[in-house]
Simulated assay, not measured.
Amino acid sequence: MSKAHRGSGIRNEEVKGGRGECPVCKRTGVKVLYEVTIDGEKAKVCKPCNAHLKAVASK
């Protein structure tokens, strides 16, 4: 099983090992690793927001 969003896989991210502010829920200090398209622009969001956006898109 892949572990791309843990440990050594996220050390190469731009800022603070993949941590930052989620543009959807505005939480800070969370891992923003999941790239999604929001209003025509690509943004990186946290895991709960990624799951929510996928659930909304599938309906």
Rank of each mutant, 00 (worst) to 15 (best):
D39L: 09
I38V: 10
V36E: 02
V36Q: 01
K44P: 04
A55R: 14
T37E: 13
C49Y: 06
E35G: 10
R27V: 05
K31G: 09
G29E: 02
A51S: 10
I38H: 08
A51F: 07
T37F: 08
A51Y: 06
K42P: 08
G29L: 01
L53C: 10
K26W: 10
K44W: 14
A55Y: 12
A51V: 08
N50D: 15
K42F: 13
K44T: 06
Y34N: 04
D39N: 10
P48D: 03
L53W: 14
H52I: 15
G40C: 04
K26V: 00
A57D: 12
V32E: 02
T37S: 13
G40W: 02
N50M: 11
K26P: 00
C25Q: 00
K54S: 15
E41N: 08
K26M: 06
K47M: 15
K42H: 12
V36S: 00
G29A: 02
L33M: 01
P48S: 03
A43G: 00
K26E: 08
I38R: 05
L53G: 12
T28I: 01
R27W: 06
A43N: 05
G29P: 00
Y34T: 01
V30I: 06
L53Y: 14
H52Y: 14
K31Q: 11
E41K: 11
A43L: 07
Y34P: 02
A51N: 08
K31N: 08
E35K: 13
E35C: 08
V30P: 02
V32T: 04
L33Y: 01
V56G: 07
A55I: 13
I38M: 09
K47V: 11
A43Q: 09
A43E: 08
I38K: 10
P48F: 07
L53A: 09
T37V: 13
G40Q: 04
K47Y: 15
R27L: 04
A55S: 15
K44F: 15
D39S: 09
T28F: 09
I38Y: 13
V56L: 12
C49F: 05
G40D: 05
K44N: 12
K47W: 15
T37W: 09
V32F: 05
L33C: 03
C49E: 06
C25D: 04
E41F: 12
C49V: 07
K54Q: 14
E35S: 10
C49S: 05
K31P: 03
R27Q: 04
V30F: 01
E35V: 10
A57M: 08
K54V: 15
C25A: 03
V32Q: 01
A57T: 11
G40H: 04
K26N: 06
H52R: 13
A55L: 12
G29M: 02
C25M: 03
V45Q: 08
Y34A: 03
L33D: 03
K44C: 11
C46F: 01
L53H: 10
A55W: 11
R27M: 05
E35H: 10
C49N: 06
K54W: 15
H52T: 14
L53I: 14
A51C: 06
K47N: 13
V36I: 03
K26Y: 07
K44A: 10
E35N: 09
K26Q: 06
V32K: 00
P48R: 04
